[in-house]
Design a protein around this nucleic acid. Sequence first.
DNA 1: TTAACGTATAACCAAATGGTTATACAAACA
DNA 2: TGTTTGTATAACCATTTGGTTATACGTTAA
Lengths: 114, 114
Amino acid sequence: MVIQTQSQRLTDDEVDRIFHALADATRRDIIQRTLTREQSLTELAADYDMSFAAVHKHVSVLEGAGLITKHANGRARLVQANPSMLRKVRGLLDEYEQIWRGRIERLDALLAED
Amino acid sequence: MVIQTQSQRLTDDEVDRIFHALADATRRDIIQRTLTREQSLTELAADYDMSFAAVHKHVSVLEGAGLITKHANGRARLVQANPSMLRKVRGLLDEYEQIWRGRIERLDALLAED
DNA sequence: TTAACGTATAACCAAATGGTTATACAAACA
DNA sequence: TGTTTGTATAACCATTTGGTTATACGTTAA
């Protein structure tokens, strides 16, 4: 078993996988549903107009991105969203906001000269 | 000329396009660079190890997602990031946070019973 | 008016994506 | 034990993606 240490910084590949995982409405819906309460794969699959295998693939993509985790309960696999990863994504966007604010401040400083 | 009214809610397709656009390191880099200051396509293309046409495609993807805007200046096309769209994306993630908090509150309420 | 520069786009290609059906395995139950 | 249920995965397919080269089109400058 590998203990995943909470890495401070995400690599480009990790960020690629996270945003890719979020770029699909079915996968975003799975995140929403499993934020509220954990759900098994069959429970999830029942509500989408596609095969179980397709839903299984979507869940795998989310798992690979660290956006959800699965744990076994008998033969069921319970899926739950991982809010800490969602917060990390928000943190990435906050960095953009900081860059933007930095630009505004430099413009302000420029106007304030003389 | 079409005046784009600031639509309150993004459609699934729009969100798909936005996250897809963010799921590539080159495109994220273009956003970062053009948040600081607007840059022409050739300026942008000079720093990547790929053809001008490839960079042009990346910029088109970002433009289609509303994450950057282009305006002409002579023969140059100046690219600048669109911070308001980035904030909207953050808003989407905030919604997930709200759902998550709602769950916690319900759990707290449950524990508070008796 | 030509030549050079910046941009746009077409045609092509390999690889990835998102779906399918079919099959296998593992756990629960009659 | 045998059957059903839940999950995993393989093989396949059409479409999309992300790159290429080549070419065309405006705009600037000599």
